[in-house]
Design a protein around this nucleic acid. Structure first.
Lengths: 226, 226
DNA sequence: CCGACGTGGTCAGGTCGCGTGCAGGTTCGA
DNA sequence: TCGAACCTGCACGCGACCTGACCACGTCGG
């Protein structure tokens, strides 16, 4: 089957067998794969980075734990997959709004399956890399752009890889060799000077959006974001 | 008059001629239009997005395929019409419960015609192909058209699928491969250049309605809506 | 049965921008 | 002060993309 994208591996943490079943069936019917956890403990065991899940569906109201705690525990374990929270109606005005801002999403129970499916697809699509925010600068891999405040600048693929590599560890110095390896992953042999050209272009684009951070040179070592 | 107004186009996939006849007659008597498929193959051929059906009635127990597989195949083709599954009694406790919770529905054979009619109406009502609005652009799946402000342009089915895929996440870059997979869900091998032609046609049509958003190219990656 | 029409798909040629390298100037560290 | 490291501006080639046309096929009305 070749339809709209690749299969997504979805991790579900839900105590209610009925809801679990509904979700599992619907997701499988749409060509996705499912990993199940019945409670917080199983979630931590089964839905970590090693599980290979790409999207998480977590019930906020678990018997043994809050879905947000589960999320936090998974995140602590290096699991960065986007989360779709299932929440009861009365919790909506609580702190749920916060989820949405974080790139994660939520649906209110009782929910329509179709809604869950749509959101799972959306999360997967934009999740591969979630927008990376670094001191007022946000990188959007799905848009190939960098934004500060409201302004946004689009980057070429190579520019983006380079900036992403340098921004990966804010404050740390990215060595020239490391930057080259990141921006040219195929191991192409590029002129030492080429990277300077790209750094320059990045500086111009960062300036065009009044970036709060500067791309500075550490002479003899590499580059860093300040 | 009982039925609430507009005619609904119902797609039926059912192998039993008797059941087919009963459904067809009842639906037509209530002012609906019917498109028939005798098996899974015909369903995929006749009940896709291009058929214009608004509600699907799928027999779960087809000779050549499971109704759920048929549903999956149709969904992959961009057919998002709600489904009413016809299922045998013994399957109820199977996984059918899952359908009812979602946007879709089911009835158990043998069923009362009136029940089917009620559910068809309910399904249609709650899933009227609402136009999808994206930054001033609205896509009308039921009319295969795109509108901005007051102006409207009609699209061919392939054009619509392509635009819908790119518009799914405004601002995000839709990769060429993904766009191809969306516009040609059957996995047809199309010339790499073909998609360019369609993008061009879409651009022309978007321009003809003074679209507020532009279909721009992200060189080396894909397309995006800005 | 035939021709008009809409749709899907292909092709050849032209355009354009990304990736790249170079030359010359400038800054920094010793 | 001197050399190396870095910055700046620019030019160029190739491949990705755009453009406008063409053709094959199915549908429908006459």
């Amino acid at each position: 089957m070749v339809h709209d994208g690749e299969m997504t591996v979805v991790g579900i943490c839900e105590d209610d067998p009925g809801v679990r079943r509904v979700l599992t069936d619907a997701l499988k019917m749409h060509g996705h794969d499912v990993v199940i956890a019945r409670n917080g403990r199983e979630a931590v065991d089964n839905l970590g980075v090693r599980s290979g899940v790409e999207v998480l569906i977590l019930d906020v109201g678990l018997p043994d734990a809050d879905g947000r705690d589960v999320c936090q525990a998974l995140r602590a374990g290096g699991q960065h997959a986007p989360v779709l929270f299932l929440t009861a109606l009365d919790a909506v005005h609580d702190r749920v709004a916060g989820f949405h801002a974080g790139g994660d999403d939520y649906v209110v129970k009782p929910f329509a399956i179709s809604e869950v499916l749509v959101r799972v697809d959306a999360l997967r699509r934009r999740s591969r890399p979630e927008p990376v925010s670094i001191s007022g600068l946000s990188l959007h891999p799905d848009r190939l752009s960098v934004a500060a405040d409201g302004r946004e600048a689009t980057l070429t693929p190579t520019e983006f890889r380079l900036l992403a590599a340098i921004a990966a560890e804010p404050g740390a110095v990215t060595r020239r060799r490391a930057a080259v390896a990141a921006a040219w992953p195929d191991g192409a042999i590029v002129n030492e000077n080429t990277i300077d050209s790209y750094v320059r272009r990045l500086r111009v684009k960062l300036a065009s959006i009044d970036s709060p951070v500067e791309l500075t040179t550490v002479r003899g070592v590499g580059f860093t974001l300040r």
